[in-house]
């Protein structure tokens, strides 16, 4: 009986497991394998290169720039969109006038593909006739070459990303807020706690697990979402907005060096696995806390 259950369990898991292994675990391992080879010339066997690709990586200025861009990009988008998301959720969850319409307005960018969003924002940022520069002009300020100036290009991308993501994270906060126990708030109100005190001492700590969850997802998004680069900057000017995954794409499908692309992918994998471990240990603590 028991062994039949085992057999059935494995049979039911088999399709999913095969696909998971084929498109997640095995590729993750073969990334490592391929990063140790040089690209095969036509008709020849790929040549074993040992750590050559990694030496190249350490000397590759574009890689270091993409990595640092990516870290700045995460730092520039994650905290701001999280705070905005929390504020939005608090507003939409309160008895504010027209909250359904507000929720709709905040959430709509989430439903749009990044490509469509970038198409629209491209015009906001365009140098001559762009909306932002017209706005600056009407205030008597000099116009900015938003996407063409290396100092402004990455912040411009960040601004758009914050707009796109905040409403998505709002949903998680909203779900958590609606699950909070109203008795706690009734008790706090009885004690005469001010709204700000209630927020700081009650809401914020109770939302900690949600914040952690959102944080991890937001950081993950900062590394895996590069669609807008294809429309807005193509990683330029002069790699000022190149991000890791975009650089991987360039190496694999524009420069046709899939082995170096594998080397870069491995770096990204290690980064994400570290992130996963961090999340895991933090979550463990949360479970103990409960």
């Amino acid at each position: 009986m028991n062994q039949r259950t085992w057999l059935h369990a494995w049979l039911m898991l088999l399709p999913a497991l095969v696909m998971l292994l084929a498109f997640t675990h095995i590729p993750a391992l073969s990334t490592l394998w391929h990063s140790l080879y040089l690209p095969a010339r036509s008709g020849e066997q790929a040549e074993f290169a040992g750590l050559d690709n990694y030496r190249m990586l350490l000397d590759d200025e574009v890689f270091w720039q993409a990595l640092s861009n990516n870290l700045w990009y995460a730092l520039g988008t994650v905290p701001t969109s999280m705070v905005l998301a929390l504020v939005m959720a608090l507003w939409v969850n309160s008895r504010i006038r027209g909250r359904t319409a507000l929720r709709l307005a905040y959430f709509t960018p989430t439903m749009l593909p990044m490509i469509a969003v970038a198409n629209i924002w491209l015009f906001f940022y365009s140098p001559e006739i762009g909306l932002f520069n017209q706005l600056l002009g009407s205030l008597g300020l000099d116009s900015i070459n938003w996407l063409g100036d290396p100092d402004w290009a990455l912040p411009s991308l960040m601004l758009m990303t914050i707009w796109k993501e905040a409403g998505f994270f709002m949903i998680f906060y909203l779900a958590a807020l609606q699950g909070l126990n109203p008795d706690l708030y009734a008790a706090a109100a009885l004690e005469g706690a001010s709204p700000w005190y209630r927020f700081r001492r009650l809401t914020l700590p109770l939302l900690m697990p949600t914040s952690l969850f959102v944080l991890v997802n937001a950081v993950l998004n900062a590394f895996k979402l590069v669609d807008h680069l294809f429309i807005l900057t193509k990683g330029g000017p002069n790699n000022a907005t190149n991000l890791l995954l975009y650089y991987i794409y360039e190496n694999a499908f524009a420069f046709f060096d899939s082995n170096y692309a594998a080397t870069l992918t491995l770096v990204l994998l290690v980064l994400l696995i570290l992130l996963a471990l961090l999340q895991f240990t933090l979550l463990e603590r949360r479970i103990h806390y409960r």
């Binding site: 990334t31 995954l245 694999a252 899939s258 994400l272 999340q279």
Partner: peptide
């Protein structure tokens, strides 16, 4: 965490 999005090279 190891999402298919980043494994484009090997999956291709």
């Amino acid at each position: 965490m190891v999402v298919p999005e980043i494994l484009i090279v090997e999956n291709y």
